[in-house]
């Protein structure tokens, strides 16, 4: 992987990641996951723990709400709690939907690559598999079976193609807008080495190439906006 490199000071940053994470609640984390997932061009690791916890939380609130309603407590409190729950629900749905959209778009590419495939949750993997099968079947029935032998593949332009050249892939070269919470030290933005390393000042926004910061996105040190 030719992701950008950064110098040793980042290692120190990782160690206080724990303090940072523990000081943030799940609502914050979910918002962050949603934002990052929306802004990143490729599919990111599924936040299994976070999604589970959020689900449980929502269920808990639902139960509490029912109790509150039957016990005839203040309707204002009930409706405010309801709003709070709706917001979490929205985030969770939007997060999952954003992922599904990406999966639908890059399913074959994701399926080919073990690393990417493992980023999906079990249900997402099931979904992607079904999707690929259905799409292949559809292509087969509607078009491909009627084409000459050379053009029968759904992933290759023709038999002379060496690789699967009809599989949409995410553009990792694209630029994203990001922000760091802490100083990460000098960041090499270009692999050519010509570019001077850039210091990303904490709190400021930068438009940088996704490829060069993706490892920092994975580790949560850089937030996409």
């Amino acid at each position: 992987m030719d992701s950008g490199t950064w110098d040793g000071s980042a290692a120190a940053a990782v160690t206080d990641d724990y303090d940072f994470l523990s000081s943030t609640n799940d609502a914050e984390l979910l918002k962050r996951a949603w934002r990052t997932e929306k802004a990143a061009p490729e599919i990111l690791q599924f936040e299994a723990g976070l999604v589970d916890r959020s689900r449980e939380q929502i269920q808990l609130v639902e139960e509490t709400l029912e109790e509150l309603m039957t016990s005839g407590s203040d309707p204002l409190t009930v409706s405010l709690n309801q709003m709070d729950m709706d917001r979490t629900l929205f985030l969770l749905r939007s997060y999952l939907r954003t992922r599904l959209q990406k999966i639908e778009k890059y399913m074959v590419h994701i399926h080919k690559n073990t690393e990417l495939w493992n980023r999906l949750s079990e249900q997402e993997q099931k979904f992607a598999k079904r999707c690929i099968e259905d799409l292949e079947e559809h292509f087969e029935k509607s078009v491909l079976s009627k084409l000459p032998d050379r053009y029968k593949s759904s992933v290759k332009q023709s038999v002379i193609s060496e690789e699967d050249d009809m599989v949409p892939e995410p553009q990792l070269d694209t630029y994203v807008i990001c922000r760091t919470k802490r100083s990460l030290g000098a960041l090499q933005l270009d692999n050519s080495g010509i570019e001077d390393p850039v210091d990303l000042d904490p709190g400021d926004l930068y438009a940088v190439r996704y490829k060069s910061i993706k490892s920092l996105v994975y580790s949560g040190q850089v937030e996409l906006v």
Binding site: I177, D190, V198, D204, L205, Y206, A207, V208, R209
Partner: peptide, 14 residues
Amino acid sequence: TAALKLENLTAMEV
């Protein structure tokens, strides 16, 4: 331009 610093820009502007 390898990176662009958008100092003090806000959410909507970005």
